[in-house]
Design a protein around this nucleic acid. Structure first.
Length: 273
DNA sequence: GTCTCCCTGTTC
DNA sequence: GAACAGGGAGAC
């Protein structure tokens, strides 16, 4: 599941490959994955040069010389595969961009949840404009203030707040669990009951864990690989996520697995309160 | 603000 | 052969 560290690693790996490349032709194999419709989508990309790639939350933003942008969201299982132009397609290929230099970028997405939206600068898609703050580039005080303000008007568990992209952009299920463990805060705790001192710890854990995950080039728990097909290594450093039925690495107590904020959630009932 | 659903490969 | 995995759009 690509979250901020994975999407950023993909961005960094793809940027030197696609920057300056000119799109020759585009083929859409899953209509619902693209906006606008396939004809307009293909026409808007053909002949265009990719001038850069930005990231916002879990979105990759490909910048085109036409001024338009292509927002790609990989959702759970989407992969972007850079390869030589091919006549045969991998199973579940939803979109292919062929470049003039004989290379191709394939969007392979078994769950078919991923999306690619071509849009003019003046009309970004709703999901993008609604995004909250970037955890790694927002000043500490501004980020803490946004978290506390959101918490004050939320009755649900703190985990739900950390997953809410409208407040903080980029955390998903893996890193929300890891952050809360590192901060010693239970995912079940009502957001509005989290203390100022705990928000400090949560903030510190967000920054530290995301930076560490970036250094290890993401978590390859299931499908994730970067734009070159290389796996990350942060899965070896997870303390609670995916460790259902195992023991806490800090205190030895059995970890708990429960459904919180609609997501499978791992935590230590002893270390987190 | 919270719940449901979209999907299919993997796990139980 | 059923349950599970989950980000975000849309429904309540």
């Amino acid at each position: 599941m690509p979250e901020l560290p994975e999407v950023e690693t993909i961005r960094r790996s793809l940027l030197p490959l696609v920057q300056g490349a000119v799109i020759d032709q585009v083929q859409v194999f899953l209509e619902k994955a693209v906006k606008p419709g396939p004809a307009e989508f293909e026409a808007g990309l053909a002949g265009r040069q990719i001038t850069g790639i930005q990231r916002r939350g879990k979105y990759l933003l490909f910048e085109l010389d036409s001024g338009q942008r292509l927002a790609i969201h990989l959702r759970m299982a989407g992969r972007l595969v850079w390869q030589n132009r091919a006549t045969t397609l991998a199973k579940h290929t939803t979109l292919v961009m062929d470049f003039q230099d004989g290379k191709s970028l394939h969007f392979v997405d078994p769950r078919k949840f991923g999306t690619a939206v071509l849009f003019p600068p003046a009309a970004p898609p709703a999901g993008l404009t609604a995004l909250g703050l970037e955890p790694l580039t927002t000043e500490k005080e501004a980020l803490l203030a946004a978290l506390k303000e959101a918490a004050a008007r939320r009755s649900g568990p703190v985990k739900g707040l950390l997953l809410d992209q409208r407040i903080l952009a980029g955390l998903g299920n893996i890193y929300a669990d890891e952050v809360l463990f590192a901060a010693g805060v239970s995912p079940l705790r009502p957001a509005r009951e989290v203390t100022a001192a705990e928000w400090e710890k949560i903030y510190g854990s967000i920054v530290r864990i995301l930076n560490k995950a970036l250094a290890y080039r993401g978590t390859s728990q299931r499908d994730y690989v970067d734009g070159r097909g290389e796996a990350g290594e942060f899965q070896h450093h997870l303390k609670v996520y995916g460790r259902k039925k195992e023991l806490c690495l800090d205190c030895g107590a059995p970890l708990v697995y429960a459904r919180v904020a609609g997501r499978g959630t791992h935590y230590c009932p002893t270390c987190q309160s």
